[in-house]
Amino acid sequence: MSQPLIEFQGVEKRFGDTVIFKDFNFSVEDGEIVSIIGPSGSGKSTLLRILMTLEGIEGGVVNVAGEPLWHKRTANGLVPADNKHLHRMRHHLGMVFQHFNLFPHMSVKRNITEAPMRVQGKTKAEAEAIADELLELVGMSDKADMYPNELSGGQKQRVGIARALAMQPSILLLDEITSALDPELVDEVLDVIRNLAKKHSFTMLLVTHEMYFAREISDRVCFFDQGAIVEEGEPEQIFTAPKETRTQAFLNAYMSQ
């Protein structure tokens, strides 16, 4: 079996005195779509944020594509990564945020072309060709010249997805991307992800509260509680026959809502 694309080995993460992860182990295969569910405060988002290098770790190693993310290999073993290393590693990853975090002073198109131009050194024409393609993919071609405050939440999030894809990441991190949306706008965003999952061979890691969606799209579902994976398995098994009582309790509480 090949090496996993993402691998957490004995990771420790604290916020002050609050321990989020302790000796945390987790891995994702290349091309796998993994949903993470669980109560808030269980460390779901922190997991994605560590991968996106928005949060550091206090112990252990995180490997991405066979290389340590937060460390650099040297003759004397692993040392904490410098900015250059993090910059290089970030090319593997793209992230879509719960609150979109679009750049409000930029047009939709500029939101998407900014990073390809600045980071990958693409010309304006090249970047705009990519943007046009992605806007079509997310069904936003007609909104290219609008500004984020002129868009609905669902439209904003579709731009957020296009923006992340413009950097051609091999791993897409989706952090509760529908949690800030009105219920009637959730589906237009999930449809985009469904399409992506079908057409492309992304590795996707999603933190979500949309249980039906997680069940439909995932290869594997992980139930998190208090910084640990309580139970993981195929979606059918997790949602129809959870083994752990904590998983059962969580899902029952969810379904009865």
Partner: peptide
């Protein structure tokens, strides 16, 4: 800042 970092902007 987080979006900028995720997009790898310097």
């Amino acid at each position: 800042w987080e979006a900028s970092r995720a997009l790898n902007l310097s």
